[in-house]
Design a protein around this nucleic acid. Structure first.
Length: 452
DNA sequence: GCATGATCATGC
DNA sequence: GCATGATCATGC
């Protein structure tokens, strides 16, 4: 064990990090229990740094912050980060809100030594193995995006909106809850509302790409080979400008796309950006967890169709609470790119793009209410209201219930079902057509209208 | 023209 | 075979 880890040089740190490769946690310390706390043990037992919450990086002299984080092997053989990388706590009252380079994030995390260990479901935690490490500095374009993310976060603090910060507000650098529990509340400087304590974090999807780049040979396409100077969304818009006003057919022939797939617009967008593969598989979209969605706007700005999302399982939802539900997690973590087509002279032309995420205040109000109602109905077996012309009309929350979302079928056909945990009272059925949460067309219409 | 159930087309 | 994104169809 080293006496004073804080003053190690970069070279010394890397030599020690190298020596950890292939070692399990129980070989590092007998103190390792099954609760984890691997970061602390490595700091103390391997590098001789006492636990602290100093604003400086752990290796003060070398300006390197130490991080220990898990990854996992997926069933299909690919690797993924197991969780987001949680960095320092954001002190809303003390954070520098004006200069990124004076922020607590930058001062502590400019350079990180990230030590990766393999999480395995069936193993004791003390048997997890350290396999890789990375001396991490942000690439030029990652840093551009992260600066914008940081600006988004501090703007919310400045506007007295710290209680409404959501991870999907940003692309790579998130602000995730961190406290004794996720309900830990703290004060904020420009509002009397208490806000959840949050820490800067690198999103799970960002970490997954770091891991794949480090450990596999998978080639990923990048949208921006040039420097991102005017912001992610706007820079993309500039690249797409020459395609605005073209019809879908014109785009198909311009870009040599032959397909009638329902996700044709994603394919077109991919080609417009000069990608060989799909834009959803590009480095930037994967890192930021962006899902493309088409929005069709009719005359007078009307949007006819509501927007569908992945289905939920009846038997799963009844075992969840809202705060740890898959639905909440999905919307809190996912960013969407609307690919907007507008009807002009009877044909739809490509008119714009818009990056969007569901605001936390709607997520934890209207969407939560819809989810809670749905859960209650499933628990009571109150699914089918009546059968009318062979169609199963349901009690699920409909569009009138709130201005944001509703529940509707999303299936191959009516016989494409999930099991019900409680028999339906009216029909006695033990399964029902797959459903999902839909965003109301009227809400989408508002989102793509000019007032917003 | 809206509300809501039903279904289509493709790729993995 | 199914998940996903997207749109259709019908009754009121």
């Amino acid at each position: 064990m080293i006496k004073n880890g804080r003053s190690l040089s970069k070279e010394e740190i890397l030599v020690i990090a190298d020596s950890l490769r292939g070692i399990t946690f129980k070989e590092i310390s007998y103190k390792i229990g099954n609760k984890g706390g691997f970061g602390l043990v490595i700091e103390e037992e391997v590098f001789g740094i006492n636990a602290n919450s100093k604003p400086e990086p752990d290796f003060q002299d070398a300006n390197i912050e130490l991080k220990v984080t898990p990854y996992k092997k997926n069933k299909n053989g690919t690797l993924s980060a197991k969780e987001r990388l949680v960095l320092n706590i954001i002190n809303y009252n003390n954070e520098n809100l004006h200069d990124f380079y004076q922020s607590s994030f930058w001062k502590k995390n400019e350079t990180m030594l990230i030590i990766f260990y393999l999480f395995e479901e069936d193993k004791e935690k003390r048997d997890f193995m350290i396999t890789n490490h990375l001396l991490h500095q942000f690439s030029e374009n990652d840093l551009q995006i992260i600066k914008d993310d940081w600006q988004t976060i501090v703007s919310k603090i400045e506007n007295g909106e710290a209680h409404n910060i959501s991870e999907s507000d940003t692309l790579y650098l998130g602000a995730c809850t961190k406290g004794v529990n996720s309900q830990s509340l703290v004060t904020q400087p420009f509002s009397t509302f208490p806000a959840k304590q949050r820490a800067y974090s690198l999103k799970t999807t960002y970490m997954t790409q770091l891991i794949r780049k480090l450990m596999t040979k998978e080639k990923i396409e990048t949208i921006f080979k040039e420097k991102i100077e005017s912001g992610f969304e706007n820079q993309m818009r500039i690249r797409l400008r020459r395609f605005f006003g073209k019809t879908q057919d014109e785009l198909k022939s311009m870009l040599n796309v032959v397909s009638n797939a329902k996700n044709i617009n994603e394919l077109l967008l991919s080609r417009m950006l000069g990608l060989k593969g799909k834009v959803s598989k590009s480095e930037e979209f994967l890192k930021a967890n962006i899902v493309p969605k088409t929005v069709r706007v009719e005359e007078y700005g009307r949007v006819i169709e509501s927007m569908s999302f992945p289905t939920f399982e009846f038997s799963q939802i009844v075992n969840e609470t809202w705060d740890d539900s898959e639905t909440r997690d999905y919307f809190e973590r996912t960013k969407f790119l609307f690919i907007i087509f507008k009807k002009v002279n009877e044909v739809y032309v490509f008119s714009d793009i818009k990056l969007w995420n569901l605001p936390l205040r709607y997520l934890d109000n209207q969407v939560k209410d819809t989810w809670e109602t749905t859960k209650k109905l499933i628990c009571e077996g109150k699914i089918v209201k009546e059968i009318k012309n062979g169609r199963k009309m349901t009690y699920f929350p409909d569009k009138k219930d709130n201005g944001i979302c509703h529940v509707r079928p999303h299936a191959k056909n009516a016989n494409d079902t999930y099991d019900l945990p409680v028999r339906d009272v009216l029909t006695g059925a033990i399964k029902h057509t797959k459903q999902c949460f839909w965003l109301n067309n009227t809400y989408i219409m508002f989102l793509v209208s000019n007032e917003n």
